[in-house]
Write a protein that binds this DNA or RNA. Structure first.
Length: 806
RNA sequence: GCGGACGUGGCGGAAUGGCAGACGCGCCAGACUUAGGAUCUGGUACUUAACAGUGUAAGAGUUCAAGUCUCUUCGUCCGCACCA
């Protein structure tokens, strides 16, 4: 009789052994095939681990453990994305240094993770707030700066009045701050920007070379938002000047009956002297600026605008004078901030034209009545009222008009992207200082590599300021430094980097985490990169995942690494919801603490349940009783020890099919992240083994091997108790034999006209010929078809026989 | 509005076009127990006394055969949202 299954003693025991043996440390031996598994490194919050973290961690732990057993040199690292607002806010509220809070939180997180037995290589831990780490974050920024990809720009930015911080476009969700949901307002500020738009096309093209789930590719493509069209010059009447517009529908140019510019467009100020209704226009511009993004889209139903009187444009196709309007439905940040309006074939222009009684001219035939509704289809209909374009299809018209515009130097083919440059400055304390100095004489002077890291100074007050200045600006002794070039008094840049900076390259640092000469040795980077498999949340698709692809592509361009794309494969896990089906949150009171679950049922059962609860990529409500069911399963596995056959060790012939097909099913399902069905198959296997009175050692070993990636502690313990040799983590992954995958006999369904009437046992390898000749004559089938004429016989080997009769 | 995913028992969910509901939770009954929130055994879609029939959001279609493919409608979730 074996002792009782007690996870509270065996789990810490094996965790200590793994650690002492360095069981999961990646090797520097580059002769072995490598495999790099990655999870998103956690933000070490004060709340500690929640049940969402282990879902991703366990999934990739299964892959990492399986790959080691398959003979790979595996890198499965962990680290801490530790800069950021919650820590800073906590530090302010509790009057402690953010660095101290961070250290405590990291220690807590590490302990929690270790309890769950993940096979991380803790010798390669990284911490984004460690000066030895952020030295290289700053170095990368300087490289970006030197290559013209970082620039300072005064612009209206998204400002969260609650966090008192500028936000990147990617951090604004539905017009609100991603973090605190406060409506974002516009504020004109000088900001450091990164020219991610320069990489738009390559970020798009790279998606075709990687194995990301389609949803991620699609969202990134939409975010980059490539469109093709033409840039066209409209002359302004009685001037030598012109107004540039971008359109994806140059074919509709004959229908452009007016133009619209964005409220921020410089045209108004330029022609202020000629404009007869200037006060009204200024009034309109002022009102538009007052609106937040959210209000601007809220009001989208009723379009507003005002005509610019005194300035007219000339449609280059018709030669006619057309009026110029100003409206906030045109955005300064896209295209040229001005459009040619074709109300007959654009819903927005149509709405605007109807509101202000502007002419609607049909140029594509096919709509019902363009006075009532815009006709936007590009597949059906030919050009009318369009001079030399008449009779052409939309596609042909686009080609012809573009050529005509180019020949007459009125415009040209143009590709546009929705993607905007990345707002990279933050006005908060707890981030990487931007390593630049502003000198009145020399301008912006970057620090030398030898002067990195530029340490974040220790200060008394971390509070953000209402003025929008970084708290660093208040530290005179830190800000005021001599210019490194000319020695004259100069000032440091006081903005810090966003949290996304450190996370944009952490997966590179894991390859060579202790290197103090470079962010990583090229040989190490080239060996390990790209990451073979990266699992993380969908919420990062257009943030971290896009940013880090951009940085990696840039670092590839300057020769730091050979791979161009950082991640070969990207998958995503679904969220774990509270028991009530709602998102887990403190305010809803439905948060499940992993520690409590581990205390009750052990880490193995907890891991097992996280993988078993449902399809990995779906959101699933937590169920503590479901988790207990997984513990019961492990209890049954443990008790199999009492059933071991003392005489025979080999797999019994009648169990060959079960054992081999389960090995195959589980192996395949792990790779496809179908963990729930893999575990179901192992449960079935245990159920079947339990039904026979005895279990042989080889049957049991096979089960322990395939179960070990999910529930490693219990499997190691049993393996040791039974004296099966070297620890499990050193064992090879089991193979299956094709010839045992097929049972000798299988029960097939007998259908008459598609309805099941009987079942019978036949040899699995029975062929179509044998079946159609033999089966209709058997007793079971004969009386079912008595007196009827067989029209057709359909036989699916091992499955069914369908007899179509009349 | 545009784009995407999805809709199966009381619940989480299984099903290369081929026996719908695997596996688990919950529930019911029984066994063993001083006891059970432990363990074991059996049962558990619906209608029906039964034979049998009906069932995968609703409706139509393709097929020998549809949860799976096609079309329409309804509903849920996610992403983007005046991007010209």
């Amino acid at each position: 009789m074996s002792k009782i299954y007690d996870p509270a003693t065996i789990e810490p025991k094996w965790q200590a052994i793994w650690e002492k043996e360095g069981a999961f440390e990646a090797s520097r031996d580059h002769s072995r095939p490598k495999y790099y598994c990655l999870i998103e490194f956690p933000y070490p919050s004060g709340q500690g681990l929640h049940v969402g973290h282990p879902r991703s961690n366990t999934a990739m732990d299964i892959i990492a453990r399986k790959r080691r057993m398959e003979g790979h040199n595996v890198l499965y690292p962990i680290g801490w994305d530790a800069f950021g607002l919650p820590t800073e806010n906590y530090a302010i509220a509790n009057k402690v240094a953010p660095a101290k809070v961070t250290e405590e939180n990291i220690n807590n997180f590490r302990n929690q993770l270790k309890r769950l037995g993940f096979s991380f290589d803790y010798t390669r831990e990284v911490d984004t707030t460690d000066p030895n780490y952020y030295k290289w974050t700053q170095w990368i920024f300087l490289q970006l700066y030197k290559h013209g990809l970082a620039y300072k720009h005064e612009m209206p930015i998204n400002w969260c009045p609650s966090c008192k911080i500028g936000l990147a476009n990617e951090e604004v969700v539905g017009g609100n701050c991603e973090r605190c949901e406060t409506p974002v307002i516009h504020r004109v500020k000088e900001q450091w920007m990164l020219r991610i738009t320069k990489y738009a096309q390559r970020l798009l093209d790279g998606l075709d070379t990687v194995d990301f789930i389609e949803q991620v590719k699609l969202q990134q493509r939409n975010w980059i938002g490539r469109s093709e069209g033409a840039e066209i010059r409209f002359h302004l009447a009685d001037t030598d000047d012109s107004l540039l517009v971008y359109t994806t529908r140059p074919d509709t140019i004959f229908g452009a009956t007016y133009m619209v510019v964005a409220p921020e467009h410089p045209l108004v100020e330029k022609y202020a002297a000629r404009i007869s209704n200037l006060p009204e226009i200024h009034d309109y511009i002022h009102q538009a600026k007052q609106k937040s993004d959210f209000e601007r889209s809220e009001m989208a139903k009723e379009k507003t605008g005002i005509e610019i009187q005194g300035v007219k444009a000339i449609n280059p196709a018709t030669g006619k004078e057309i009026p110029l309007w100003i409206s906030d439905y045109v955005l300064m940040s896209y295209g040229s901030g001005a459009i040619m309006a074709v109300p007959a074939h654009d819903t927005r222009d149509h709405e605007f034209a109807r509101g202000f009684n502007l002419p609607i001219v049909e140029v594509i035939q096919g709509g019902e009545n363009v006075q009532e509704e815009a006709y936007t289809d590009t597949e059906v209909g030919e050009l009318i009222n369009s001079g030399f374009l008449n009779g052409l299809s939309v596609q042909d018209a686009i080609v012809k008009i573009t050529k005509w515009l180019e020949e007459n130097k009125l415009g040209h083919h143009k590709v546009n992207y929705k993607l905007r440059d990345w707002v990279f400055s933050r006005q908060r304390y707890w981030g990487e200082p931007i390593p630049l100095i502003h000198c009145p004489r020399c301008g912006v002077v970057p620090l030398e590599v030898e002067d990195l890291p530029l340490m974040l100074p220790e200060v008394e007050h971390y509070e953000p300021t209402d003025s929008g200045e970084s708290p660093l600006a208040a530290i005179d002794s830190w800000v005021n430094v001599p210019c490194p070039k000319c020695g004259e008094p100069a000032q440091r840049e006081t903005d810090t980097m966003p949290q996304w900076a450190g996370s944009s390259w952490y997966f590179m640092r894991y390859c060579d985490p202790h290197n103090d000469q470079a962010l990583g040795d090229k040989k190490e980077l080239d060996y390990w990169l790209p990451v073979d498999w990266y699992n993380g949340g969908m919420e990062h698709t257009t943030l971290h995942l896009l940013y880090s692809r951009f940085w990696h592509l840039f670092l590839h361009d300057i020769g730091v690494t050979s791979a161009s794309e950082p991640y070969q494969k990207r998958t995503s896990h679904g969220m774990i919801l509270g028991e009530n089906g709602e998102k887990m949150s403190k305010s809803r009171g439905n948060v499940v603490n992993p520690d409590d679950i581990v205390d009750e049922i052990g880490a193995d059962a907890f891991r097992l349940y996280e993988m078993f609860m449902g399809a990995f990529d779906q959101a699933i409500p937590w169920s503590t009783s479901g988790a207990r069911g997984c513990r019961r399963f492990l209890d049954r596995v443990w008790r199999l020890q009492d059933m071991l056959d003392k005489e025979n060790t080999a797999i019994r012939p009648e169990m060959l099919h079960l054992v081999h097909s389960t090995i195959k099913k589980v192996s395949d399902d792990y790779e496809a992240m179908k963990y729930n069905t893999a575990i179901a198959a192992m449960m079935s296997m245990v159920n079947e083994l339990t039904e026979s009175a005895k279990v042989t050692a080889d049957e049991f070993k096979a089960l322990l091997l395939i179960l070990s990636p999910v529930a490693p502690h219990i499997c190691e313990e049993i393996w040791q108790i039974q004296g099966y040799g070297e620890p499990l983590y050193l064992q090879p992954w089991p193979n299956y034999d094709e010839k045992h995958l097929v049972k000798a006999e299988s029960e097939i369904a007998i259908q008459i006209n598609g309805r099941i009437r009987a079942r019978m046992l036949v040899p699995t390898d029975m062929t179509q010929e044998e079946a159609t000749q033999v089966l209709p004559g058997t007793d079971e089938v004969k009386n079912l078809i008595e007196g009827k004429e067989i029209i057709k016989l359909i036989f699916v080997p091992g499955r069914l026989l369908n007899i179509v009769v009349r």
